[in-house]
Design a binder for these strands. Structure first.
Length: 746
DNA sequence: GCCCGGTCGATTTTT
DNA sequence: TCGACCGGGC
């Protein structure tokens, strides 16, 4: 986020946004236009001269990082008073309400938050209970449907099947899933929002209390809100209608997780009296970068319209590299990085890619050139097994009804409580409408009719005693010592020590890091309890602590790059099928989202933007022949310097191999493919009867499987060519192009 | 429990 | 191509 000198005057538009007093306000804040500053100053102003109490102001963001930054910046002006603001992420805001009013929804106040792994486990359990095959009903797919419904504010009982058998079943699973969440006294992420809505639906008194309280509501990144979040804001703002939303329709890139771009596009329809302010002056990039970015985003039809400009000067042209292979691209990036090293720190440079799979080849090159880098995304700290195990202990201590966590730790480390035992306990719990914990905490009670041998009984009793001992201990010993106590009492630490592997050692290191996380938390929150720590962790993510004071080249997906900025940016893999991704080819609105993503990537760059694409890329083990992204056609040539003249103009025409006309300071790879295969997109295969070329994304019809989409072509233009085609819901076939007799449609 | 081999799938991800 | 995951066998 751009933090330009706070002593600097606000520009007239920013000023207007800060000064607007009452009524709905939409701030269309372009990339790098100083929107955080506007939000902060607006809040400060409301408090300072507007006579609004901090507790009457609610400000919501999407990430903890954004909430924290805003809080700190308000505190710089307002000191302690900033603590009374309701400033949080959507999820922690809702959590606060739900903890306070849990009983209204038949929850107790210490309910557990399920992350998506917990959610997945519960779904699997339900599939088992309902005797549904998890190959037909893939847990991931069920999870997607459930989350989507929650994002869209659809209840299980209203789940639309449209007569579809599969979806009907999904609805039934969904209903069962919700039932089990209550049994487990747990809520998933979606529930936090949805249940807040239910709470208001159930209790008009509570609703009106908060409606009265929040005289001013501010929403950051409004283009990322989903339907449920939209409904929540709408409801809360209903009394005062002082709702100020900040966002950028051109940076809406989270449709796949429920973001509803219509929320921002339709703001004026929802609030006809709304004032709209555009922040178009950019403080981040050069005019060249902005012109190119503006040109790309102009290709979208559904947008509010915005043109970024700057006083930063023209700057350098965008450096465009067209290479032969993905390896060449990586080499281009590395040699450029090395040539920039004199002027820039490594930490000032970043590489953005569309898909995580692209990072590998880049990493190989970076390592080869001994360029230190760090990579964002991937395995998350809190998703590591050892951290999840400890979290499960802690969650179980706070809420033993939570069977998912309980089962995870029951036999971790191994205590000889096996699968059969668990199944018998499950059966008993079901039979007696009790929860798992009820059974094991009185395991010898004849009521359960458990046919367990005495050895197993003792093992279970020992486990129950362990939990009791831990619960006792957490009252008695200081929280910062409790984790270590936990590691030892459970035997977990000893288990890792006994393993004597490097992996086990690194797990121990992670556990040590986990105690540091708790220590930090306790330092920052004097009143911190185990419960509040769990909340914090459950709603935390690794990206919250992306600090930029390290001297490593930064690697991340374009999605993760949103909100960040770097002096030097490499945007790689600008090729059809990759960026825009094949999966977006079907729907114009998906292509538009890809274009926004491209725009987000480009506008991260402050001074130097590099864009690259190649002709051949290894994908899923085989070579794909690529053509330059359509987005590149949209960038006016005058903003571009070609670093390599090969391929750029090749879209739609067979590329002419001229060899590298540009080569960097570093050694350029000498090995080249002997023959350049005829371009994939140009295959007009004799067995295909259509004029349309056979290419990734093409729609085809097969006599047996029906209509589908080509997702992969292997073997190029040869008799051995194989195409992988997706026919409707996940059915994929790999067919020989020669024999499949495909008919190209559309 | 644990290891091995086969199979399947592979866009993006916060909370 | 490569990793995750599952089921079978010990």
């Amino acid at each position: 986020m751009t933090i330009h000198d706070p002593r600097m005057q606000l520009n007239p538009k920013q000023q207007e946004a800060v000064e607007h007093r009452d009524g709905p306000l939409l701030i269309l804040a372009g990339a790098g236009s100083g929107k955080t500053r506007v939000l902060v100053e607006r809040i400060v102003r409301l408090m300072q001269t507007g006579g609004v109490n901090p507790w009457n102001i609610m400000a919501v963001t999407f990430t903890n990082k954004a909430a924290k930054e805003m809080k700190e910046r308000v505190a710089q002006s307002m000191g302690q008073r900033a603590n009374d603001l309701w400033m949080a992420t959507f999820h922690s805001f809702c959590l606060r309400l739900l903890r306070r009013h849990a009983e209204v929804l038949n929850y107790h106040t210490h309910f557990t938050i399920y992350d998506d792994l917990d959610q997945r486990s519960l779904i699997k359990k339900i599939l088992k209970d309902m005797q549904l095959s998890d190959t037909v009903y893939k847990p991931a797919s069920i999870q997607y449907h459930i989350n989507k419904a929650k994002n869209d504010g659809i209840k299980a009982e209203d789940f639309p099947s449209g007569g579809d058998f599969f979806l009907k079943k999904v609805g039934a699973i969904f209903a069962e899933y919700q039932k089990h969440l209550i049994l487990n006294q747990a809520m998933d992420f979606g529930d936090l929002i949805v249940n807040a809505l239910h709470l208001f639906g159930k209790s008009p008194e509570i609703l009106s209390k908060y409606q009265n309280q929040f005289q001013h509501i501010l929403v950051d990144e409004y283009q990322d809100t989903n339907k449920s979040q939209y409904a929540l804001i709408r409801l809360l703002a209903d009394k005062w209608k002082n709702v100020c939303v900040v966002g950028d329709d051109d940076q809406s890139i989270y449709k796949f997780r429920g973001a509803e771009i219509r929320n921002i596009l339709d703001f004026q329809r929802d609030y006809p009296q709304a004032k709209v302010i555009r922040l178009e002056q950019n403080y981040r990039s050069t005019q060249n970068i902005l012109n190119a970015s503006n040109a790309v985003i102009r290709g979208n039809t559904e947008r509010m319209g915005k043109e970024l400009w700057t006083q930063n000067g023209q700057g350098e042209c965008i450096r465009m590299f067209g290479g032969q292979t993905d390896h060449d691209e990586a080499e281009f990036v590395c040699s450029s990085i090395m040539s920039h090293r004199e002027k820039y720190r490594l930490g000032d440079m970043a590489i953005f890619y569309r898909t995580n799979a692209q990072s590998r080849i880049l990493e190989d090159s970076l390592r080869k050139h001994k360029i230190p880098y760090r990579i964002f995304g991937g395995i998350k700290f809190y998703d590591r097994a050892e951290i999840k195990d400890m979290m499960s202990y802690l969650k179980t201590l706070v809420n033993p009804s939570n069977t998912i966590s309980l089962k995870r730790i029951l036999n971790t480390p191994a205590r000889g409580i096996g699968k059969t035992t668990v199944e018998r306990i499950d059966a008993a719990a079901d039979r007696e409408s009790a929860c798992f914990w009820d059974v094991i905490s009185s395991v010898s009670d004849p009521r359960w009719a458990l046919e367990l041998n005495t050895g197993t009984m003792t093992k279970i009793e020992d486990f129950v005693k362990l939990i009791a001992r831990l619960n006792q201990a957490r009252q008695e010993i200081p929280l910062d010592d409790f984790l270590t106590f936990l590691y030892e009492q459970t035997g977990y630490w000893q288990m890792l020590t006994a393993e004597k592997t490097i992996e086990a050692q690194s797990r121990q290191e992670n556990l040590t890091e986990f105690t540091n996380v708790l220590d930090d938390y306790l330092h920052e929150n004097e009143e911190g309890t185990l419960e509040s720590f769990l909340d914090q962790i459950s709603l935390a993510s690794d990206t919250d602590k992306m600090d930029d004071n390290t001297d490593f080249v930064n690697l991340m997906t374009v999605h993760l790059a949103k909100g960040l900025e770097y002096p030097v940016v490499f945007l790689v893999g600008l090729e059809e099928g990759l960026f825009p991704h094949v999966r977006s080819f079907d729907k114009p609105e998906d292509i538009q989202e890809e274009r926004r993503l491209c725009y987000v990537g480009m506008t991260r760059a402050k001074e130097l933007l590099h864009i690259s694409f190649v002709n051949e890329r290894k994908l899923f083990g085989s070579t794909q022949y690529q053509i330059a992204s359509r987005f590149l056609d949209e960038i006016p040539e005058k903003h571009v310097t070609m670093m390599h003249d090969f391929g750029y103009q090749a879209r739609g025409a067979a590329p002419v191999h001229k060899g590298p006309s540009w080569s960097s300071t570093a050694s350029y790879p000498q090995t080249r493919k002997q023959s350049i295969p005829k371009h994939e997109t140009q295959i007009d295969y004799q067995y295909s009867q259509a004029e349309q070329p056979c290419r990734q994304g093409s729609r085809v019809r097969h006599a047996v499987f029906g209509e589908g989409k080509i997702i992969l072509i292997e073997g190029g233009n040869s008799d051995q060519a194989k195409v992988t085609i997706e026919f409707g819901r996940g059915i994929r076939k790999k067919l020989s192009l020669k024999h499949a007799n495909l008919v190209f449609v559309r």
